[in-house]
Design a protein around this nucleic acid. Structure first.
Lengths: 218, 218
DNA sequence: AGTAACTTACAATACAGTTAGTAAGTAACT
DNA sequence: AGTTACTTACTAACTGTATTGTAAGTTACT
């Protein structure tokens, strides 16, 4: 009894209009953050009023969620056609992404700003980012496991630490790069860090740093 | 003719009141972000109206800058008394900080949120974070140089990459930890990454990952 | 004919900052 | 010590603006 409402086919250009809105939203949210990025500005960029945007997405919160999922699907299409990267391929893919990212600061900024913002109270992007990181960490861990078998290494803890660390460096470097593009070589530094961490998992060796009693609260 | 205005000494309790405001601000800005954190809420927490807060700090923007500088000075006092950490000591200090941070999610969140927010257009914290990262990177690079001499290594590029990477992992891990505290071991993972990166600088070795043509745009 | 895709107009709220006023302090002079 | 002159540290009230969401109407597609 909830679906007896007659549903008419959407007009052919509607999908394209929605996509325009999603792109504009990513740009605005990226440059001003979600909270400070007004719907009116998004609407203006696609040539309508803010009420028009709400007609398509219902609310600002829902719009954000769709924006994030939209970028995901766009990124997935990049990988489509190629075989799913496994083992070393995934890490090479990450490095390539870092190189690509240098050419699209807007998108990088959107993710940097929104992911951090999403840790705040009741942020509409919270759930999305929790899932995203969890998924990515598992993907990296899986890639590690494939490579570990070949190298005869099996250390779950190290793999987990390295997976989280790789995602973390990439994100952290993006923030530094956005703040001072001329002082940070985003791609080269990412590549260095990823190579270092991957190598550390596959070929463990003693630390050059004595940490020992540091872990005890002084 | 503009500075002949008579300047009176502030009342004795004023300094303490200001500090209360700074603490409350860090908490509010940390939990809701700068944009969404209203002055009224800060004021309420210290028992005054938002106009009272503005009386002390002039504007919300100026308040944020003072909040950030205030935390810096508080952190500096922790290091005071001890000798300035050089070489390996600095890295051990970073690891210790990661352990401490697990006990103060509020402050961690404030820095994570505000640093990312500060990359947005005309954010009042922008300058502060640019300076902060620049300073920290130099500090790390200096520590590396001291250690490199002992090990007979001299690779400026690697040092720079590692310095930026270490700060980046710490920040990135914090975001993941704030999103999912139960899935991330903040301190242990930080320690792993720092040790790995330091060791990579002092004892370089070939990468287990063939990157080669990845750097060429496909 | 009915609905999708809007617009205009409006309601409701949230906020930063300003102004005017007050109580209580500080500092100088007597 | 007391008075005068001025300032600090506020509050209450208001202004202005920004901003999301909604309701009602219009046009054009299906």
């Amino acid at each position: 009894m909830s679906s007896n409402r007659r549903r008419l086919a959407p007009r052919p250009e509607t999908a394209a209009r929605r996509e325009e809105i999603l792109k504009a939203s990513l740009e605005i949210f990226g440059s001003k953050g979600f909270n400070k990025g007004p719907l009116a500005e998004i609407a203006e960029q696609v040539g309508m009023t803010h009420a028009g945007v709400l007609h398509h997405f219902g609310s600002k919160d829902k719009l954000l969620v769709e924006v994030l999922r939209y970028r995901d699907s766009a990124d997935l299409q990049d990988l489509e056609g190629q075989h799913i990267p496994d083992g070393a391929d995934l890490f090479r893919h990450l490095v390539r992404t870092a190189f690509d990212n240098e050419q699209r600061p807007g998108i990088v900024q959107a993710y940097a700003v929104l992911s951090a913002e999403s840790v705040t109270d009741k942020h509409p992007g919270h759930e999305y980012f929790v899932e995203r990181y969890a998924t990515l960490r598992v993907q990296l861990a899986d890639a590690f496991h494939i490579m570990c078998e070949e190298h005869g290494v099996t250390d779950q803890t190290t793999v987990d630490h390295a997976a989280a660390s790789i995602l973390a460096v990439m994100d952290g470097l993006q923030v530094q790069w956005l703040l001072q593009p001329d002082s940070i070589e985003l791609a080269e530094t990412s590549a260095f860090a990823i190579e270092t961490l991957v190598t550390a998992v596959l070929d463990p060796r003693p630390s050059a740093l004595a940490i020992h009693d540091v872990t005890e609260q002084s």
